[in-house]
Simulated assay, not measured.
Amino acid sequence: MISGGPRPVAPFSHAVEVDGWVFITGQMPTDPAAPEAPLPDGIAAQTRRVVDNLRIVLDGIGLGLEHVTMARIYLTQFERDYAALNALWPSFFAPGKLPARTTVGVTALAVGALVEIDLVAKRP
């Protein structure tokens, strides 16, 4: 668990490392400083908050987004939000350094979120 990290919505660790591979639990668009606050409005704002939370976890284990090798993204409104997500996604990474990615439409997510993202990273 990462000190100051997002409050878990279920029993899990923020990250688990095995042989230099780091598996980061899916993060929600909640504010770690105000976990009961309403979620941000819209897919872009929620995605930014999720990525900020992922950065907190990565930073807590001495890594950054540049170490991410794979992302899984879950969307509750796939058809509505997929294009907007795709337009925003590259802004989180260095040009030409996008991780592998799978995006899945789901019927619901915890806390009523529109998006959840989990990651796999590799320690250098």
Results as ranks from 00 to 15, higher is better:
residue 72 R to F: 10
residue 78 F to G: 05
residue 53 N to S: 07
residue 11 P to M: 08
residue 16 V to Y: 10
residue 113 A to H: 02
residue 72 R to Q: 13
residue 65 L to Q: 05
residue 15 A to T: 11
residue 98 L to Y: 00
residue 62 G to Y: 05
residue 52 D to K: 14
residue 122 K to A: 12
residue 19 D to S: 14
residue 52 D to I: 04
residue 123 R to H: 06
residue 94 A to F: 10
residue 83 A to R: 15
residue 17 E to N: 05
residue 102 T to A: 15
residue 64 G to V: 11
residue 50 V to F: 09
residue 81 D to W: 03
residue 89 W to H: 06
residue 115 V to M: 04
residue 94 A to Q: 14
residue 56 I to H: 03
residue 121 A to S: 14
residue 64 G to K: 14
residue 82 Y to A: 14
residue 71 A to D: 04
residue 37 A to C: 06
residue 79 E to A: 12
residue 122 K to F: 09
residue 14 H to F: 07
residue 32 P to H: 04
residue 122 K to L: 12
residue 50 V to K: 03
residue 23 F to P: 05
residue 110 A to F: 10
residue 118 D to I: 09
residue 88 L to M: 08
residue 34 A to I: 07
residue 87 A to I: 11
residue 112 G to S: 00
residue 107 T to I: 09
residue 108 A to E: 13
residue 56 I to W: 03
residue 27 Q to I: 00
residue 60 G to P: 00
residue 45 A to P: 03
residue 47 T to I: 07
residue 74 Y to N: 12
residue 8 P to E: 05
residue 6 P to N: 11
residue 73 I to R: 13
residue 24 I to M: 08
residue 26 G to W: 01
residue 97 K to P: 03
residue 15 A to Y: 10
residue 81 D to F: 01
residue 113 A to M: 03
residue 56 I to Q: 11
residue 90 P to D: 01
residue 118 D to N: 15
residue 35 P to Y: 00
residue 37 A to P: 04
residue 37 A to M: 05
residue 57 V to E: 00
residue 16 V to G: 07
residue 37 A to S: 10
residue 96 G to Q: 08
residue 64 G to M: 13
residue 108 A to D: 09
residue 80 R to H: 04
residue 19 D to W: 08
residue 9 V to Q: 13
residue 114 L to M: 02
residue 106 V to D: 05
residue 93 F to N: 04
residue 83 A to N: 15
residue 19 D to V: 09
residue 35 P to I: 00
residue 81 D to I: 02
residue 34 A to D: 14
residue 76 T to M: 02
residue 46 Q to V: 08
residue 6 P to L: 14
residue 97 K to Y: 09
residue 31 D to M: 07
residue 105 G to N: 02
residue 13 S to C: 11
residue 95 P to N: 04
residue 25 T to S: 14
residue 103 T to S: 09
residue 48 R to G: 08
residue 99 P to N: 05
residue 1 M to D: 14
